[in-house]
Structure formats: structure tokens, C-alpha cells
């Protein structure tokens, strides 16, 4: 009887241990800045049709939580996110709450993978629509592989106190260079593109 109890206890311990490990989901991701593209000082040169060129630079990295800044219209803005060796997460929809990262991309993602973020009854969906098997996208002088993530934003969803101007954003990432480009579709049907043409993230 005692043996039976011990065996049951052990079995329960294993279940709890394995269960907890599964629940952690992603906590085994490496956040050491020297091993990710979130190293302080890393930058991405950005270009958008109709706008002056800009640059986003990582200012700080605390346990993978990065603060990056960029200049737009003469004013400096900050963006927060999380960068690990496995992927990139952002805090746009949680307004910077570090306990609520939202997956932007996983470098081992497969077509059909999907991540959701709920705000009340509304849901922001990010879905992997394409994973290159060949180098099929230009990046400066290079041809690279990309992981494409389509983000669908419900109408009227508030971001920083105003309704999001976008209904869809198609993101393209690369496991070495990080952000490659984004195509945004606005609520009025027009589109905006933003692309990176240089980075030191792979140095």
C-alpha cells in the first residue's frame, strides 16, 4: 500500500513537473542580449514611401525586454518589446505591460501558426502566411528567406488612446536580420509600407 502511494506520489510529481514546464511555455528562451538581435546599439535603417528615412535603435535591454527609439517628424518616440533567440514579442496592445507580451514572430514558425491577443471582446490575430524555403526576398543587395505574419486588427481597437488606423499589417521577418518590412492597410483602404534596408543585427 505504501509502495502504491509512493508510486502515485511520484507519478503526480512527474505530471506536475512536466505540466509546469509546459505551462511556462517559452521561458526557456534565451534573453541574453549578446545572443539575440536585441543587443543595445543594434539599429535598423528604415524607409517609408513619402516619409524621410529614419532609424530605430535599441536603447536598453533588461532580460530581453528592449526599449528602442526612433525619430519621426522631429520627435523621438519609444517602442517596447521583447527579443529572445526564438522570436520577437511586442507590448503595443498591452500598452507596455511586461507581463503581457504578444508574439510578433517565432523564428521556427510554420505556415498556419497563429497568435491571438484579446482586448475585451475584440481579438487581434497574427497568422503566419508564408515561410520561405528559398531565398526569395531582396534585402539590400542580398536575397534572403522570410517569415510572413499577417496581423488583423478589429475596427476601432484603441492603441495609445486613439483608434488604430490599420486594419491589416503584413510583417516580414528574417531570423538573422529581424525586421525586414511591413505593409499596412489603413481603415480608408490606402496602404503604407515600411522597410528596413540595413541593420547591424547580424554582426
Amino acid at each position: 500500500m505504501k509502495m502504491k502511494s509512493m508510486a502515485l506520489l511520484m507519478l503526480l510529481s512527474i505530471v506536475v513537473f512536466v505540466g509546469c514546464d509546459l505551462l511556462k511555455g517559452g521561458e526557456d528562451e534565451v534573453t541574453d542580449p549578446s545572443k539575440t538581435m536585441g543587443r543595445v546599439g543594434n539599429y535598423w535603417d528604415l524607409q517609408s514611401t513619402g516619409y524621410t528615412a529614419s532609424k530605430i535603435t535599441v536603447d536598453s535591454n533588461t532580460d530581453g525586454n528592449v526599449v528602442a527609439s526612433y525619430i519621426y517628424n522631429g520627435k523621438t518616440y519609444q517602442l517596447e518589446g521583447k527579443v529572445t533567440d526564438k522570436g520577437i514579442y511586442d507590448y503595443v496592445y498591452s500598452n507596455g505591460d511586461k507581463n503581457k507580451p504578444f508574439t510578433l514572430v517565432k523564428f521556427d514558425a510554420k505556415v498556419g501558426d497563429q497568435w491571438e491577443f484579446k482586448v475585451g471582446t475584440q481579438t487581434v490575430v497574427r497568422k503566419v502566411t508564408h515561410v520561405s524555403t528559398d531565398n526569395d526576398t531582396y534585402y539590400g543587395m542580398l536575397m534572403i528567406k522570410t517569415i510572413d505574419v499577417e496581423e488583423t486588427i478589429p475596427s476601432g481597437l484603441q492603441v495609445k488612446g486613439a483608434a488604430s488606423p490599420f486594419t491589416k499589417i503584413l510583417w516580414k521577418f528574417n531570423h538573422k536580420f529581424g525586421f525586414i518590412m511591413a505593409f499596412g492597410t489603413k481603415t480608408n483602404g490606402t496602404t503604407v509600407n515600411l522597410y528596413s534596408y540595413d541593420t547591424n543585427a547580424d554582426d
Binding site: 526599449v67 519609444q78 517602442l79 517596447e80 507590448y91 503595443v92 498591452s94 500598452n95 507596455g96 505591460d97 511586461k98 495609445k160 488612446g161
Partner: peptide, 9 residues
């Protein structure tokens, strides 16, 4: 509330 560089949550 908590504060971040993006405002508060």
C-alpha cells in the same frame, strides 16, 4: 496602474 514608455496600463 503601471507605467511604461508607451503610457500606462
Amino acid at each position: 496602474i503601471g507605467y511604461s514608455s508607451m503610457g500606462y496600463y
